[in-house]
Write a protein that binds this DNA or RNA. Structure first.
Lengths: 190, 190
DNA sequence: CTCAAGGTGAACAGATCGGTACATATTGGA
DNA sequence: TCCAATATGTACCGATCTGTTCACCTTGAG
């Protein structure tokens, strides 16, 4: 049972911050909703900021594990790349979907030097690295460029799914991605 | 000088909310930084939420005017479409760039039914309508689909410019956009 | 049994939150 | 000159914010 309350707190805080926002969620409310006493919360994390950083670390692991596992199920590297957008479609369809936790974190802590902002940026960097690797396996001539293009579409789809009126942003992104992927794989421009 | 203080307040609040965030900026601080008394602020806007809505309306006008004017300078409709990403590049290069005000608003007010959230969504809808029109003028067979794809790239570029480590998200988006545009215009799939 | 680690509840601190009350200027037109 | 509109400063309200203090409870290992 070592540090079980700590993990429980991080797990529950993740859901509440995601639904309500960071500034909008006070530590008192967090204590009330999780059933964990404020005393304990501040024993594990010396500040709200530390708790948020822990939440973001957990979210980073959860999300990357989920996404890349879904992608691996598609088989060949090239299929994995477009399968990313099928996974996104599933995510968007979940009733509790409220955009990307890291985009939200960066929005609420806009200063690029703020620890929370840099931690959110780190998530995007790790996503890029894994995607770049798959792009290389798929035979892309410029894996980094392909990974960047696909990430643009992914972020755009997330924002649009949360903010727009569009019916199927993930489908739109997938359609655009297919063109970008085949341009990068089928017609190596050299 | 009718209602000049009101406009001045909205204009200054726009900058402060954009830099600091909505929840993070209190009405007291707003009064202190703008030099406008709290009494006056609450005479013009009965709540912080009303002020934020006014700020978003102003931002919507400013941004759309700026963007579409920049695009029109490019001449022909097709050139306008890719010129959007040149305009974005200029924006990202500004020292004060901190992502899109509407993405931030939606992040801080994640409930899709919240007035601030819906107002932010309205901005994206207006962007879509204008872009769709240009896509139609450019001869796209499915202007709505092309507009959606380009908006995905635009939102993705904004998020990445704010959150990522990438050197030139606008350039990446433009490159991807060129492929999508030519697929939609040069090879009508029918 | 004992003792330390981890958890609890409740009260508290000082600051800030959104928002109001009230009495006092300043100003431009009739 | 007088009035109405607009703005001001200051103090205040109750609630909530992050964070602390302290005395007490539970539990498992030696």
């Amino acid at each position: 049972m070592r540090a079980s309350k700590r993990d429980e707190l991080v797990r529950e805080a993740l859901g509440i911050f995601y639904r309500e926002g960071f500034h909008a969620t006070g530590m008192d409310r967090l204590a009330a909703e999780t059933g964990i006493s404020k005393t304990t919360m501040f024993k594990h994390f010396h500040s709200k900021e530390e708790l948020i950083l822990a939440v973001l670390r957990l979210r980073d692991q959860n999300f990357r594990n989920w996404l890349f596992r879904r992608m691996e199920e598609a088989g060949a590297p090239r299929a994995q790349l477009s399968a990313m957008f099928d996974a996104l479609a599933e995510w968007f369809a979940e009733p509790g979907f409220r955009s990307c936790m890291f985009i939200k974190a960066a929005s609420e802590y806009p200063d690029p030097h703020h620890p929370i902002h840099t931690q959110a940026a780190e998530h995007k960097r790790l996503l890029f690295l894994q995607l770049q690797k798959i792009a290389a396996d798929a035979g892309a001539q410029d894996p980094a460029a392909l990974a960047r293009a696909l990430l643009l579409l992914k972020e755009g789809a997330i924002v649009t799914a949360h903010l727009g009126h569009e019916a199927d942003p993930a489908g739109d992104a997938k359609a655009a991605a297919e063109k970008v992927i085949s341009a990068a794989l089928d017609h190596p421009q050299a």
